[in-house]
Simulated scan of single mutants.
Amino acid sequence: MKKKWMMGTMAAALMLTAGTGVYAGAKLQEVKAYLNGDIQLKYNGTPVQPRDEKGNAVLPLSYNGTTYLPVRAVADVMGVAVSYNPQTSTVEMGEKSEGVAIAKGFENMYYTKDPKATTYQGKDYKEAYFDNAGSKRSSSFMLFPKGKYQKLVLQVAAVGEDIDNFFIEDSGKKAKLKTDKLAVKDGLKTIEVDIAGVDELFIYADIKENGAMFVPLTTSYFK
């Protein structure tokens, strides 16, 4: 869900943490500004302390009658994903304009490119997670959005037997973001989950004997 927000008379400045050299060649103008510890930030009526990605407290900047807030800290408070693209000098907040397939960097013993295992209902997805071990078992894999994305769009199908226990968990907080049941008759199911601020995701299912779980990695994506 896209979020709209307003900071009263304060303007949010684009102040992302960046490595040395990121801004080389950028059109920067030097100004004299002041860290302003007198300004307090509230979100939905509750006082909050903006922090950087390392957990350190950060202060607003006052310049020429305007107060600037670090965009990463504000985004974290509001549960909005934020990232910086140094190639295009673009700050992206919320959902990305294009999805990023979870196939990139995916590692698991059930990862496969075998066409016999990546094909589901006549379509070859090229890369897939396909757990067909053939016994009653738990099946799981990890994803690592690293707080860069707003949403996970995951496609998943039960094969052979229904899956009665399926969930997606914020691994760091041990909090379930989504629980579901997967029926064979439903085919490939699309599940959307808000993952703003989440570093690691744990995807889990209980698989019955003679059952399997199929996840196409090329059409499941972060956004």
Rank of each mutant, 00 (worst) to 15 (best):
L41C: 05
Y68C: 08
V77I: 15
G160S: 05
S171E: 12
A24K: 13
Q40S: 09
K104Q: 11
T179K: 13
I39G: 00
K2N: 10
V100Q: 10
D38C: 01
A175E: 15
G37C: 01
K2H: 10
I168P: 02
R137V: 00
L188Q: 07
I203L: 07
V159Q: 11
A81F: 08
K151E: 08
Q121S: 15
K185G: 04
G8W: 10
Q150F: 08
Q150W: 03
S135A: 10
Y129K: 02
A175V: 12
Y110F: 12
D52A: 10
R137G: 02
D186P: 00
R72E: 15
D199A: 14
R51E: 14
N108C: 08
A175C: 00
E127Q: 15
I163T: 13
D114F: 01
A33I: 10
V156R: 00
V71M: 15
D52R: 11
K32F: 05
K148L: 10
D52P: 02
D131A: 04
L14D: 14
K42P: 00
F214G: 02
F202P: 00
Y204T: 05
A11Q: 14
N85E: 14
N36I: 06
M213L: 12
G187Q: 07
P50N: 11
R137H: 02
W5Y: 14
S171Q: 12
T17R: 11
K208R: 10
V91N: 07
D52W: 11
D164M: 08
G55L: 02
F166W: 07
D131V: 00
V77L: 12
Y120T: 00
E127D: 12
G172I: 04
K178D: 01
G8F: 07
A75D: 07
A33V: 13
T46S: 12
L188Y: 08
V100L: 11
R51A: 10
M6I: 12
D194C: 05
